[in-house]
Design a protein around this nucleic acid. Sequence first.
DNA 1: GTTTAATGTCAATTTTATCAAACATTATAA
DNA 2: TTATAATGTTTGATAAAATTGACATTAAAC
Lengths: 103, 103
Amino acid sequence: MKHVPTMSIVTERVLKQMGNQIKLARLRRNMPTSLVCERADISRMTLWQIEKGSPSVSIGSYAMVLQALGGLEDDLLLIAKDDVLGRTLQDLGLKRKQRARKV
Amino acid sequence: MKHVPTMSIVTERVLKQMGNQIKLARLRRNMPTSLVCERADISRMTLWQIEKGSPSVSIGSYAMVLQALGGLEDDLLLIAKDDVLGRTLQDLGLKRKQRARKV
DNA sequence: GTTTAATGTCAATTTTATCAAACATTATAA
DNA sequence: TTATAATGTTTGATAAAATTGACATTAAAC
């Protein structure tokens, strides 16, 4: 990703925590980094960045790591799924659109 | 990410669905792509790839888009959080480790 | 039906992620 | 305590992502 000096502290913390959760999931399975990397077809360096919470790793690498850990890739579907705020806002507008409304 | 011709069909579908969920969240808020891009500090092209489910977009871009949509970035914390399988496996082993066990 | 803003899509260029290959450090098992 | 496998960390080369800018398409408002 582009270098972003203004990336929010909150987002940074979120990524760090997510990376740590992935590391814990790996340890629960007693899988060395080398094995996960092999299965995910990524380098050990990239997995290291994921577990550290670097914002510059591709979502594809994440997805393959989650899959390599065994069935965890469906967790990605939890993103933007519930969206309580969004549904509330939509209820106010009532109509479903395929595009944001003009001007 | 590295070009991976063997990326699983399942993972591809997961990414496509996640991208669509993000698009729907944007539409519920009636936000044009241009506005989200501006707030997330990414190009319209990159948002387009996210909504299409391309595996090659950085997690940082995802995080900033979710934040731009308003409070959705915490959804990232749902990844590898519950991990029922992992906890079961750990219960069998009983000990908490900081590294995978040797050989 | 017309208008037009939102979105889809492409190519060229710049910027950045990813890799390989080291070497250093440290937790774990014996 | 010691041996060693797992992990931490750096660097330089290269593959790939992200951007810019352009143009095409299309849904929505009138």
